[in-house]
Write a protein that binds this DNA or RNA. Structure first.
Length: 827
DNA sequence: TCGGCTATGA
């Protein structure tokens, strides 16, 4: 009984009882979405006025991002920068702040003296950054550094902060405007204040604004920081003098007391970031001495520089930044850096593995505060670059940093790690070891992770393992999904003779997933049937395939192409598939049809007619045909069919021609002939002994920027060998050597086609006596000499190429031989 | 984070 009948029968009986694949249930949503919706509900319960609605339509190029976020009614927010005149003399601020920090007066009094001030003297002092009281109040005097924590939702309402859409950034109201701050600072001891941070934050927000991506758009402008005149002057002076600039600046800074020094440090830093970011790296490096600049300023600066340089696509500076980071992270007792994930995410693509590794080491050694997501970024990098020990290490760090093991991000990382492990030598064993480690950490293997391990096993050719994972997956109550079956079916292809396994797998797939709604699984079934029956049942293979196809997919496209036998549909056609066929399944059917022996059946369309029809449908923008031209698959199928006969070479040339021109009004982009396409085309000429034309094809493909590969070369060599053209054969072998293509099994078999093996051997002997022919000698030494030795040959090759090229233009005799009158395959 | 179609031969 034909294999597909069995399978398809069971499909018919079980279809109604198939479990419907349920749409994504809310419980399966990523955690972030869940917490977001929880937050929304909390927000609703809150009595406080609702946040302004976000209306994308109101965003225009002119309107400021902040105004948009906050709504115009939220305050008389000027769209222009506040008057620089109004900016308070920052020096005064420091003076005012000082007593506040050290007073132990009651809280109320302290609050009133918070040194964030109105800028215009005529305006009443606003309560600019309202202070949050930390939950933890102890009586200790204020320590000298700031700590930060996120405010609660309620606190956020109170201080009128707004959280930006996608970053841990708050908007604090100050100076009558909203400004971006990295965090609302909560000082240890329960004292809260803007103080130093306020100045920094406000000014930093002005330069940072441009890179603040909310709603996926960059803000239209950034604002110059408003700085103390001296600071800007010094910075300018320092830059103007590359030799003594930095020592001069350092000397000036050193002359101040610590408060003032930090103040000027921050002013210079802001100026540099705005005007000379490249210089800022140097500045950070040079000022990294005890007592260190404030941690939060370093955090901000690093983040700003990373964003700036990545926006400028300045890889060099990004690398410099990555080398600066380990230095800055080492602060002894100067507080730990707190870096968010975006810093590393922006840097990593431009850094070498060593640089990334150094950053990772710095994070670990100097206890830089990072989110567990950051560890996952590192882990992903290590996994992709094949450093599995480190990848696992980073994964472990993430876990220690309280990563949720069942979160999407964590699992995704495990998946990357597992999937990439197969690219290692002995990949499957590496993969299994990683599985062991993950389980030890406490990760539970879910469906997806099992699928990946199965896929790895399949790719390693270990079907036994793949199937045993499958059965234990079922035993453990996990549900095999469409991926699982697609992977298993892919495995079946490597032992396609095993009809029992194939049959059982198809049956299982039909039973457990709705194959009529899963194009990939359906395509895999189709492909398995195609390979199996082509081998074991060649006469009826196409017929069987048509039947299977009809039960899975909509057969209209097949009819449009003229691929269906004209006989009336049988009684079984009651169970027609309705899925629009995928390009892959169409390609399978078309390849199968084209592979069919047509000499017997008169009713079937000629491959050339199918091709014509196909192109016509493409021109009509009919799917799935149109999107099929975006890859070379189907064109290559046609090519392979056409080159079988000498006459078909004309058709093949037509295919190549079609591939090189863009069809009119097509929605899809035509794929140009690839290395593979050209190789097939070349094979067409070489197999029919038309070596001159084959050489032409080689010329043409190279002119189009496609270089031959070992398949192309072997094809050419086999062609010359079959044509008993020793001269040509040796010539190809020499060109292969120049191209550093090594001989393989195909080359050897090709050479056997040359009948006069003795002569060939003699020729090899003769050439072997030339010492430079020795392949094993040091390439560096021999290459130049080899080129000299083959100078004559190289010249002959050139001559031959020219001949071939000329042949294209003015020797139609070869072309006439293939039946062409006006032979212009190339554009 | 996981899955589908194409090339050289006896």
């Amino acid at each position: 009984m034909p294999l597909c009948r069995l399978a398809i029968r069971s499909l018919l009986h079980s279809r109604s009882s198939l479990p419907k694949s349920s749409p994504t249930a809310p419980s399966q949503w990523p955690r972030a979405v869940q917490s977001y919706s929880t937050a929304l509900e909390e927000g609703r319960r809150d009595e406080s006025p609702p946040l302004p609605e976000l209306d994308l339509s109101k965003v225009t190029a002119e309107s400021s991002y902040l105004d948009f976020i906050l709504g115009p009614k939220d305050g008389e927010l000027p769209t222009t920068a506040p008057d620089a005149r109004g900016q308070a003399g920052p020096g005064k601020e420091v003076k005012q702040r000082k007593p506040t920090a050290h007073q132990s007066s009651p809280r109320r009094q302290r609050l009133s003296k918070v040194p964030v001030r109105a800028l215009q003297p005529e305006q009443p002092v606003k309560k600019d950054i309202r202070l949050i009281k930390s939950a933890r109040t102890n009586g200790q005097s204020a320590p000298s550094r700031w700590t930060a924590r996120k405010p609660t939702a309620r606190e956020m309402q109170r201080i009128m902060c707004r959280r930006s859409a996608n970053t841990n950034v708050y908007f604090a109201r100050a100076h009558g405007r909203y400004f971006r701050t990295k965090h609302v600072t909560v000082r240890s001891g329960g004292i809260l204040s803007g103080g130093f941070s306020s100045t920094w934050n406000t000014q930093f927000a002005r330069i940072q604004r441009y890179y603040d991506r909310g709603q996926g758009e960059y803000m239209s402008s950034r604002l110059a920081p408003m700085l103390h005149g001296d600071a800007a002057k010094w910075a300018r002076e320092a830059i103007a003098d590359p030799e003594d600039g930095v020592p001069m600046m350092l000397g000036r800074l050193a002359g101040f007391t610590s408060h003032k020094r930090y103040y000027y440090w921050s002013q210079i830093a802001l100026w540099l970031m705005y005007n000379e970011p490249e210089y800022m790296i140097k500045f950070l490096q040079e000022t990294h001495t005890w007592p260190y600049p404030p941690v939060s300023c370093i955090d901000d600066s690093l983040r700003y520089l990373a964003m700036h340089f990545s926006h400028q696509k300045d890889a060099e500076q990004l690398q410099a930044l990555s080398e600066l980071f380990p230095l800055l992270a080492d602060r002894e007792k100067g507080g730990r850096l707190h870096i968010d994930g975006s810093f590393f995410r922006l840097l990593m693509p431009h850094c070498s593995h060593e640089q990334i590794n150094e950053m990772y080491r710095a994070v670990k050694v100097h206890h830089v505060k990072v989110d567990w997501n950051t560890y996952l970024h590192f882990s992903t990098h290590f996994a992709r670059s094949g450093h599995f020990e480190q990848a696992l290490d980073a994964l472990l760090e993430a876990k220690n940093a309280d990563a949720a093991l069942d979160s999407y991000a964590f699992r995704s990382n495990c998946a990357t790690l597992l999937r990439n492990s197969i690219r290692q030598p002995a990949g499957l064993r590496v993969c299994m070891r990683i599985v062991d480690n993950l389980v030890k950490i406490g990760v539970t293997l879910n469906n997806q992770l099992c699928n990946i391990v199965m896929l790895n096993a399949v790719e390693a050719g270990d079907l036994k393992t793949a199937f045993s994972i499958y059965s234990s997956l079922v035993e453990h109550g996990l549900e095999a999904d469409s991926y699982t079956y697609a992977i298993l079916l892919k495995g079946c292809k490597s032992s396609i003779d095993d009809a029992d396994t194939l049959n059982a797998t198809i049956r299982d797939a039909i039973q457990h997933v709705n194959v009529t709604g899963q194009p990939v699984v359906a395509t895999e079934i189709l492909h398995c049937l195609a390979i199996h029956h082509k081998k074991h049942n060649p006469e009826r293979a196409y017929e069987i395939l048509v039947e299977a196809f009809g039960q899975l997919f909509d057969t209209n496209p097949l009819q449009q192409l003229g691929l269906l036998p004209s006989r009336a549909p049988g009684p079984e056609s009651a169970s027609q598939g309705t899925m629009p066929p995928s390009q892959q399944s169409m390609a399978i059917m078309m390849a199968m049809f084209l592979d069919h022996d047509f000499s017997r059946s008169r009713s079937a369309a000629h491959p050339y007619e199918v091709h014509r029809q196909f192109r016509a449908l493409v021109d009509l923008n009919a799917e799935p045909f149109t999107s099929m031209i975006e890859t070379d698959h189907i064109s290559n199928c046609f090519l392979m069919t056409f080159i079988k006969t000498k006459k078909g070479l004309l058709y093949a040339a037509e295919v190549i021609k079609d591939m090189q021109r863009e069809p009119p009004d097509s929605k899809a982009k035509q794929c140009k002939p690839t290395q593979q396409s050209w190789s097939i085309f070349l094979h067409g000429f070489s197999r029919h002994g038309l070596m001159k034309l084959a050489e032409q094809v080689l010329n043409y493909m190279r002119n189009k920027g496609i270089e031959p590969n070992e398949v192309t070369w072997n094809t050419l060599a086999t062609g010359y060998a079959s044509a008993q053209d020793m001269e040509g054969l040796l010539d190809v072998l020499r060109r292969m050597e120049l191209d550093s293509v090594t001989w393989d099994e195909w080359t050897m078999n090709g050479l056997r086609k040359f009948q006069d093996q003795d002569r060939l051997r003699q020729e090899f002997e003769r050439r072997r006596k030339v010492p430079q022919l020795d392949f094993t000698s040091d390439i560096k030494d021999s290459l130049g000499e080899r080129l000299n030795t083959f100078g004559d040959d190289a010249r002959r090759i050139e001559q031959r190429r020219e001949d071939a090229a000329q042949g294209a233009a003015d020797s139609p005799s070869d072309l006439a031989e293939s039946g062409a009158q006006s032979y212009t395959p190339f554009n």
